[in-house]
């Protein structure tokens, strides 16, 4: 029995892998997980006001904010957005405000030489990013697609947007899988790790092409001709009436204040 086992197998193992730095893999994985997490939380929305109305009003508000020259209107829009924001969940408020503060700070620094203009512009950027953030976090992506279709946006555009959003999520998951695999297989010091990065990017690119083909075939098999159809009627409740009234007031106040 003892002869059957070779000597090397009986020798005590004494292998300590060399320590290695893989901070860049961790960082890449974390940023991918953030995208996936972001996509997941962004999809929890759909409360209260119907999305078609919300999308239309947000677009109008964005145009009005950027076109407005009156401080009073900017303050009014600010007060309105703060009211909407105060009704949201704490985590949502934090992520929306983080985006808008970063954007407006960046604007302020960029436009610092023109101090008079830059302050107003920074506030406008703050309001616009907040308005867009509120829409993104309170509406499901697929219902935004529905809303876009109702506003006669070309189907091709909706198709690209819809697919891109979905595949950002799927491909990030795929890429994070590849990074995990790279880390698991890098026992000890792996000098070729950085060159594997291009491999990860290449594989994700090839995979995306493959997936695109597969999806096209699958959709054709199911009878998709590139034309979107919306099922279900527009619903309109009490919350929608209040929301529409608030936005109508804002639009009217814009007209009134810009005339003065």
């Amino acid at each position: 029995m003892t002869d059957v086992m070779p000597d090397w197998l009986k020798a005590e193992e004494n292998y300590t892998p060399q320590s290695d730095k893989d901070a860049f893999i961790d960082k890449s994985i974390m940023s991918l997980i953030k995208i996936i997490g972001g996509a997941r939380t962004a999809n929890t929305g759909e409360r209260g006001v119907n999305t078609e109305l919300k999308t239309a009003c947000t677009f109008i508000l964005l145009v009005l904010i950027s076109a407005s020259g009156s401080t009073a209107f900017i303050l009014a829009a600010g007060a309105y957005l703060l009211c909407v924001l105060s009704l949201m969940r704490a985590q949502e408020i934090l992520s929306i405000l983080r985006g808008s503060f970063t954007a407006s700070l960046f604007t302020l620094i960029l436009l610092l030489p023109a101090l008079n203009v830059s302050f107003m512009t920074a506030i406008k950027v703050f309001l616009s990013v907040t308005a867009a953030g509120i829409l993104a976090r309170s509406a499901k992506w697929h219902s935004v697609t529905v809303a876009l279709h109702r506003f006669f946006i070309p189907d091709m555009f909706i198709f690209i947007l819809d697919t891109a959003l979905r595949y950002i999520f799927i491909l990030s998951e795929y890429a994070s899988g590849l990074f995990y695999a790279l880390r698991l297989r890098s026992v000890g010091r792996n000098k070729g790790k950085y060159s594997s990065l291009s491999g990860v990017a290449g594989t994700v690119f090839l995979k995306s092409g493959e997936m695109a083909d597969e999806m096209r075939s699958a959709m054709e098999c199911r009878g998709f001709t590139g034309e979107y159809r919306v099922y279900g009627k527009l619903r309109f409740g009490a919350a929608d009436v209040i929301y529409a009234a608030a936005n109508l007031t804002l639009i009217l106040s814009f007209i009134y204040l810009e005339r003065v």
Partner: peptide
């Protein structure tokens, strides 16, 4: 407006 903004 002030009331709404302050409370929010």
């Amino acid at each position: 407006l002030s009331a709404a903004a302050g409370a929010s």
